[in-house]
Design a protein around this nucleic acid. Structure first.
Lengths: 146, 146
DNA sequence: CTTGAAGCTATAGTTGCTAGAGACATTAGG
DNA sequence: CCTAATGTCTCTAGCAACTATAGCTTCAAG
């Protein structure tokens, strides 16, 4: 049996995050030692590693909740799991497209900055005047900053 | 003078968002009408459009706060503005790299799914076993889902 | 046996908004 | 001029997915 600290280390997840996952029901309530400390089995480690891996791939906790409940029923069709993964792929692709457009615009902005006074700064100028943007004058959806 | 609704329309920003920006000090406290409603000038519209545009490009509100205070002092060097924009560009580039890796892995996962039972599902399997990932066995930093 | 690390609970903070309640202001129509 | 509809006001709470803090208890090493 592993303490929460060891579990966190092995799965690459911080301790408070594990407790958080338990709190929101993504992990079952852990067994407790005589002194009320959480104890985890190898199975818990697998489950947590699954979650970690899915998070790394950008799945939301909701999607992971679904994937986990699917994986608990190994005899059913995998169409649902496939659909979740495909949706995630589509999401990633759309974010890639938006980020690529952003990158182009930021590059133009930075390249044009001659390094003089603020009054002549292209960065400030472009931000202040949308019409100085790339030809199509439309913007991608806002991309959340991490 | 514009009411908050008109201002929002013209800048493409929702009304509560404008009030929120005022609350956190990104916009100055607005003038008020006799009936206590906010009134905005053309200058406010420019400032809000600046914010909106920078948000579209993924700048954080903190970065925007800095850019705005720079733009208020037009005679100083634009090095700071340039640095902020370059940092944002670097951030976008790193996110692009991570997303590209993510996309590759998701694609592999989805392509390998034969559509049978959960027990045979590549999606579930790959999520559960990190070692089935791409050759380098390392993952990009977690990419926050939008 | 003592000390320091690791664990416990509970609460609040983060970012950038968005949604709701309940009250007041303004404007268009009759 | 009155009314109804819309717009605005403040305040509070909620979202994702954690992270941090405070104040306590338990555990393992020396």
């Amino acid at each position: 049996m592993l303490t929460i600290g060891k579990l966190g280390q092995q799965a690459g997840v911080k301790v408070p995050t594990i407790r958080y996952y338990e709190q929101i029901g993504l992990l079952p309530e852990a067994e407790r030692s005589a002194g009320n400390q959480r104890l985890y089995s190898r199975k818990s480690l697998e489950r947590l590693a699954f979650i970690r891996h899915a998070r790394d791939l950008g799945f939301t906790l909701e999607a992971i909740r679904d994937l986990l409940s699917l994986s608990d029923r190994p005899d059913q069709s995998c169409a649902a799991a496939d659909a979740i993964a495909k949706a995630q792929l589509a999401e990633v692709e759309s974010r890639l497209a938006r980020l690529t457009a952003l990158k182009a615009e930021l590059e133009r902005m930075v390249l044009q900055c001659a390094g003089g006074r603020i009054a002549d700064c292209r960065v400030i100028e472009v931000l202040g005047d949308h019409s100085l943007c790339a030809t199509d004058h439309s913007h991608p959806e806002p991309e959340l900053s991490s």
